[in-house]
Design a protein around this nucleic acid. Structure first.
Lengths: 118, 118
DNA sequence: CTGTATCCAGTACGATACTG
DNA sequence: CAGTATCGTACTGGATACAG
């Protein structure tokens, strides 16, 4: 079944010539929690710190902070601090992160399709 | 600039209800070299071990073997061994891996767009 | 040519306690 | 509420040598 003979897909011009630094991309979204953080912020909108904490099963304060800081440094997450007491911090996905929607959709569809085949 | 007000995108039904285990996906493609290996095998077709080794800058034999074995265990890469001397081993992307094309394209486009904005 | 075996370093990850 | 600090562990990634 399924022997690839010559071409399973047409040109796919994108990858033919360029080096396309996948390692760099992996750096951005490679963390254990980054994908799920981004997914939440992109598709569900702004969240506060403890909201995220509750939504992500198994994450600790420490790791959530670290990954959020890394995402912020990479320009994917915007952190807005309200100088109140008790403190309030809101996290939102940047425009750059929102542009990842298509990728997330493709990723999601792929995963779902894989589950159905079982 | 760019304040997200209510909805930057329509339904995006995918993520609304499901948990969507991004951690599981990260497991599959989270390795340092997995993305680039898959990209090569998916878009450029079958490759032998040392071909991959030469195409991927900086990878060592050990790591290439490990990541290929992991991908094989996850059903993303097919390993075909020819009982010859000298030995020959061919690696190809499975159908499941080929279904990742859309995700790779989205990823690539996103990266390119990000570079241009600079 | 295509690996495997060992050993080693760096870092990613995590539990816990403490702070403004 | 939203962190920081500290410390310990697990795992990933890598250099080198060796093998079928």
């Amino acid at each position: 079944m399924n022997r690839l003979k010559s071409s399973q897909k047409p040109p796919s011009a994108a990858f033919e010539s360029e080096p396309c630094p996948m390692p760099d991309i992996a750096k951005l979204i490679g963390g254990k929690w980054k994908l799920i953080i981004l997914q939440i912020l992109i598709f569900k909108g702004m969240k506060r710190f403890n909201e995220l904490r509750r939504m992500i099963d198994g994450v600790t304060q420490t790791m959530l902070t670290k990954q959020l800081r890394a995402l912020e440094a990479d320009g994917l997450v915007k952190r807005k601090i309200y100088p109140e007491v008790p403190p309030r911090v809101e996290y939102t996905a940047t425009k750059r992160a929102h542009d990842l929607q298509d990728m997330f959709m493709a990723m999601h569809d792929w995963w779902v399709a894989g589950q159905e085949e079982k």
